[in-house]
């Protein structure tokens, strides 16, 4: 545990130093017309703890002190990083949760089915589909679905699915109409995630299922009098889920840091989009904060994966 916390510390510090060294907030003022006086720029940067005239170790010390007191500093636009992160984590979560869940479930089902039908037409079709999806970059898939959504709306002559934003402004928050509207916005990005989850997980689940299909215990289950389908679901699939635990743990922990391409293309203002924007805007504090957030999540995912594996596999449980 201690050394894991130490790893988070190293990863976070490294991100800060890298961001502070590589990003140049001063250049943000360069293009302004009229150019602000250097003293004003310095004052501005100093107030954000971004002034490159302050030694980097001093800046880091100040930042680290804030972090230890729960304050991640200010963004380049003088907003609180804490507040912005809180808001954006919520957006990413709303965007990715349903899609990731459904994607994993579809992946498990498709993989298991593919394994049972090994080398039959449906297995080959599933394999082909998976590799087709896996080989298309997310950008292409997302843009394609965004356009397909628009064409679909045109075809039915009614705007059923939206391809930009999280919701249509103006509706009463979380009223029935608002929830329906939010779901209409969710369909297309979720579809991207579901297709990718299906393609990715089905490959692993297929292998893991094939490993147990020939097992003696599936045969025993049938010898007891279970039908083949019952034996496959109750005994084979349940056991084949064990090696998938690690994947799911990482997948779900990393939902919080968003998906850059899906957020960008469907214009959701989540963590992924923020990360790209922060770097573009030379926002050292936000970039370092995101770096720290990812480090903590990876640590948490590792822990979660242990918990999931122990829950799924009694052989690892000990008194």
């Amino acid at each position: 545990m201690v050394y894991l916390a130490f790893l988070v510390l190293i990863a976070t510090s490294a991100t800060y130093f890298l961001a502070a060294a590589a990003l140049n907030p001063r250049s943000n003022f360069a293009g302004r017309n009229p150019p602000p006086p250097p003293a004003v720029i310095d004052a501005q940067l100093t107030s954000l703890n971004l002034n490159d005239k302050t030694p980097i170790l001093v800046r880091f010390g100040r930042w680290a002190d804030g972090v230890l007191h729960g304050n991640l500093g200010l963004t380049i636009d003088h907003d609180s990083v804490n507040a912005e992160m809180g808001r954006r984590v919520g957006v990413s979560l709303r965007l990715l949760l349903i899609g990731s869940l459904l994607g994993s479930l579809c992946g498990i089902a498709a993989g298991a089915w593919s394994a049972v039908k090994q080398y039959q037409l449906s297995d080959h079709a599933m394999t082909l589909l998976s590799f087709a999806i896996l080989s298309v970059p997310t950008v292409v898939l997302a843009v394609f679905l965004a356009n397909a959504g628009a064409s679909f709306n045109d075809a039915i002559g009614h705007r059923l699915v939206y391809n930009t934003g999280e919701y249509t402004p103006g509706l009463e928050a979380w009223s029935g109409a608002d929830v329906v509207n939010r779901l209409q916005h969710l369909v297309l990005p979720s579809l991207v995630l579901i297709l990718q989850g299906l393609a990715f997980y089905s490959r692993y689940q297929r292998n893991s299922m094939l490993d147990v299909l020939g097992s003696d215990f599936v045969r025993t289950a049938q010898a007891k009098g279970l039908r083949r389908s019952q034996a496959l679901i109750r005994h084979a699939l349940r056991t084949a889920l064990i090696p998938m635990g690690t994947f799911f743990a990482y997948e779900f922990a990393l939902i919080f840091i968003g998906s850059i391409f899906v957020e960008k293309i469907f214009s959701w203002h989540g963590m992924g989009e923020w990360f790209v924007q922060s770097i573009q805007k030379n926002d050292v504090n936000a970039t370092a904060a995101i770096g720290m957030f990812v480090a903590v999540l990876v640590l948490f995912a590792g822990f979660l994966s242990d918990v999931v594996t122990v829950t799924l596999d009694p052989r690892i449980r000990r008194a």
Partner: peptide, 29 residues
């Protein structure tokens, strides 16, 4: 068919396998 046979398997005809570790499902008691 599987349906007919599963009514007999484990009922009138039972089977015991060689390796009792792999023959029992590891995740159930």
């Amino acid at each position: 068919g599987d349906k007919d046979l599963s009514a007999i398997r484990g009922g009138k005809i039972a089977m015991i396998f060689q390796d009792p570790l792999s023959a029992l499902t590891p995740v159930y008691t």
